[in-house]
Design a protein around this nucleic acid. Structure first.
Length: 639
RNA sequence: GCCGGCGUAGCUCAGGGGCAGAGCGAGGCACUCGUAAUGCCUAGGCCGUGGGUUCAAAUCCCACCGCCGGCUCCA
């Protein structure tokens, strides 16, 4: 008899090879375990022990246990579907866990699942959970597995089996009359799962390949505690409330009009002033940082895009060409070639490098109709673009400075939490190994100096250079991709960019492409969701709303206050409607105006104002001077 | 682009083969009011667009457009 040694915490047992972890835990008197792990690998209690190993039992309290439970729920979902629609009519794709639950991709012959169906399915799932079927695990030879799933008509499973590499264990899991190809791990029985809810159903390509059939993906969320589940549902509600598309409409910021065209943003007056404020801030910052602002056309000759390589690599994302005097022109999908043209407009000396050209450049890209989304994904948007052209010696300094600049700007806008990703050389890269090495080193050093945590995405860079991406975390924890700092070894070659070095010879400069907001449209979307529409004072389209208790009696005083505040550069609106004061206050609140000024008899007599802050509540009375000072101070501090 | 759902008043939505509806908003009138909704009246519609079925279509069918949720895409 072959034996193996299994260490469980401090305990150690010698058991027959093939004994399951469940049996071992039982023999040690460990109760309530729902799985195990060895190193970072998760195991279930059905796992037969094949070699000496050290394991840790997993209990509900362990975060990894969620993974097992959710995985089991995806099987319970699959079983429920089979029970309802028939074992032979339901074919299973894959059913993995997600960050908050699970999904299963399925095909139900002759039926498309609706959200009403989900209620039924969920009910059946609860029944399966209720009945607490023990879950079994079985290892099969490849041939056996193929036969089993072929017999069941599970063509997708057969495809997966054929993809499994030689030598890997093929296992099936099941409960009751249900069996599924699965690597596991799973909890011991269908009753040992947490609270769950099916959320929605959507299409998903088999294997994520648009040329393959589309399956129906059923999403569910699952947590151990009901409270956590409810928190998650509340999070969805919160996200819905913060949806920038809804806020954009309510606050009259922007418009996307079918008649104008999908994915094309129209900025309404209030959105426009917000955008102007952001852009003015951006320009001022860039000038202080030594950037030179430029403007470039919205279209460019096809030849430009041919040289840049866009026509070879980016054409599917570009708007169709237009013809003028036998020449083709394209709407620009990027600003880079124009900035290169500026660089090349004269001979450059190493003495003038780094050259930093910045532009709020509006670009147009063809995005597939199904992916458009409010301000976040559009067909015309404004990049807060810049190109930095420098010598190899300057690269490191340039990157560090750029990253710090980006972080400084994002902090000014109220973001504190960042996640940085460095993407390195992919397989099909151009450029010399030395170039890549220098660039990647610069990126890493810069991030390390900044003190920000980063993740490496090995091989995740573009073919033309490595990059840093900065994602910002919003008020409810979501990450948004904004800043990017990206090397480009391609364009300097293609456009034959040069500078004259101290040796009086021509050299090829490094070029770095970077954006801080990414796109103004998208960034405004992120800002709105982050602040739930209650923008900081300095960005608010209307900073102060003035209400006269009686428009007749106090209207004139209100107008004087308005004129004086406006004179100090404060964005102010007057509401002289004949309505209840409280109704007008409510209106201002709903419009998320940071400060409401009320003037009535009392204020008229004393020459003061009654101030109400959206955040602070009623602030009582103060003089116009004090109020103005308060506002200007807050605006200056970007509060 | 693909799968599914949805397009009705400015907004949010009800109606679902037989007279086009509500609330909010807008306009008017009255109330003269002090920190989140005063009351009454009025106007407002190619029921997304085009075709079909039917005595009759907002309603049923088809196509297209757009939006929403995903997938795919995001050199």
């Amino acid at each position: 008899m072959e034996t193996v040694i299994v260490k469980v915490g401090d305990a150690q047992v010698q058991v027959e090879r093939g004994t399951t972890l469940g049996a071992i835990f039982a023999s040690l008197g460990i109760e309530g375990a729902i799985g195990a792990k060895t190193g970072s690998e998760l195991l279930d209690l059905h796992t037969p022990v094949k070699e000496n190993m050290q394991v840790v039992p997993l209990f509900r309290e362990d975060p990894e246990s969620l993974e097992l439970m959710r995985h089991t729920l995806s099987h319970v979902l699959a079983q429920a579907l089979k029970e309802i629609y028939g074992y032979e009519r339901v074919r299973l794709g894959t059913g993995p866990t997600t960050e908050e639950g699970f999904y299963y991709d399925v095909e139900v012959e002759g039926h498309t699942l609706s959200s009403e169906d989900l209620l039924l399915v969920e009910e059946k799932m609860r029944e399966i959970v209720q009945r607490d079927f023990p879950i079994f695990r079985k290892e099969l030879e490849r041939q056996e597995a193929v036969e089993l799933f072929s017999k069941m008509g599970e063509k997708y499973k057969v495809e997966i089996i054929n993809r499994i590499e030689e030598g890997e264990t093929i296992s099936v899991y099941g409960q009751d009359g249900f069996v599924d190809l699965c690597r596991g791990p799973h909890v011991p029985s269908t009753g040992m799962v947490g609270e769950f809810k099916l959320t929605h159903v959507a299409g998903a390509y088999w294997m994520g390949d648009s040329s393959r059939p589309m399956l129906q993906r059923i999403y569910g969320i699952a947590f151990w505690d009901k409270k956590e589940l409810e928190d998650r549902l509340r999070f969805y509600e919160e996200a819905k409330k913060r949806d920038h598309r809804r806020l954009g409409k309510e606050l009259e910021l922007f418009l996307i009009d079918e008649e104008v065209g999908p994915g094309l943003v129209i900025w309404l007056p209030k959105g426009a002033i917000l955008r102007k404020t952001l852009e003015d801030y951006w320009k001022e910052k860039h000038i202080k940082r030594g950037y030179q602002l430029v403007y470039t056309p919205h279209v460019g000759n096809a030849n430009l895009w041919r040289i840049s390589g866009h026509l070879d690599y980016y054409r599917p994302n570009m708007f169709s060409p237009m013809e003028l005097e036998q020449e083709e022109y394209f709407l620009k999908p990027m600003n880079c070639p124009f900035h290169v043209a500026i660089y090349k407009s004269k001979v450059r000396s190493y003495r003038e490098l780094p050259i930093k050209l910045a532009e709020l450049g509006t670009v147009y890209r063809y995005e597939m109709s199904g992916v458009l989304h409010g301000l976040m994904r559009v067909r015309g948007f404004t990049q807060d673009d810049a190109h930095i052209i420098c010598t190899p010696e300057q690269v490191e300094q340039v990157i560090e400075e750029t990253l710090l600049f980006a972080v400084e700007v994002l902090k000014d806008l109220g973001f504190e939490d960042f996640k940085v990703f460095i993407s390195t050389k992919p397989a099909d890269a151009i450029g010399s190994p030395e170039q890549w090495e220098l660039a990647e080193r610069a990126l890493k050093r810069a991030v390390e100096h900044s003190g920000l945590d980063y993740q490496l995405d090995e091989g995740g860079g573009a073919f033309y250079g490595p990059k840093i991406d900065v994602k910002i975390r919003d008020a409810i924890g979501r990450l948004w991709q904004c800043s990017t700092i990206q090397f480009d070894f391609n364009l300097p070659e293609r456009f034959d960019m040069q500078y004259v070095g101290p040796d009086n010879r021509r050299h090829r400069p490094y070029m770095v492409h970077r954006a801080i907001f990414g796109s103004i449209e998208r960034f405004v979307g992120v800002l709105l969701e982050h602040y739930a529409g209650l923008l900081p004072l300095w960005l608010s389209p209307v900073q102060v709303k003035i209400l006269a208790v009686s428009p007749d009696k106090h209207g004139q005083y209100a107008r004087q206050v308005e004129a004086q505040l406006r004179d100090r550069g404060i964005r102010v609106e007057l509401d002289l409607r004949e309505d209840r004061l409280s109704a007008r206050i409510r209106d201002a609140e709903l419009q998320k105006v940071p400060y409401v000024v009320v003037v009535g008899d009392r204020e008229l007599q004393t020459g003061s104002l009654s101030v109400r802050g959206k955040k602070e509540g009623n602030l009582g009375s103060m003089s116009l001077q004090d109020f103005t000072r308060l506002l200007l101070e807050k605006i200056d501090k970007k509060e």
